[in-house]
């Protein structure tokens, strides 16, 4: 069962979201890109991935918490170390989540 008004709202969200996804491809087309702009573009993926997670790790509750009491920062450190030592993504993710469960679920303090 679906309500018309909700479905229309969902379609409006879909259109808005698709607009953000497609606009760059539609506009940029085959226009040439300067070397300077290319150097900027090269770093966009690293910048976005970092910006998406850094606040969750360093300020999970809306204020900066750099302490061993911040479970996100501890679990993030575990995952970072695993990735740094070239573990596959599943090990990195599993290790980080296991650390988080250990801290939160069982009250285990790693430090």
């Amino acid at each position: 069962m679906m309500r018309t008004e909700i479905v229309i709202t969902i379609i409006a969200m879909a259109v808005a979201t698709f607009f953000t996804r497609f606009t760059s491809f539609a506009i940029l087309g085959s226009a040439g890109i300067s070397p300077r702009f290319k150097r900027f573009l090269k770093h966009v993926p690293t910048a976005i991935l970092t910006a998406l997670i850094a606040p969750t790790l360093f300020a999970p509750h809306g204020y900066i918490e750099i302490s061993t009491g911040n479970s996100y920062l501890i679990a993030g450190t575990v995952a970072t170390l695993l990735a740094y030592f070239r573990q596959p993504p599943l090990v990195t993710m599993g290790g980080g989540m296991a650390a988080m469960l250990a801290i939160r679920g069982f009250g285990i303090n790693l430090f």
């Binding site: 991935l49 679990a75 993030g76 990735a83 993504p89 990195t92 989540m97």
Partner: peptide, 12 residues
């Protein structure tokens, strides 16, 4: 924490 862990696996 699955989301941050996923992005760390992609980022590092």
């Amino acid at each position: 924490f699955a989301m941050p862990a996923t992005f760390l696996a992609l980022l590092i």
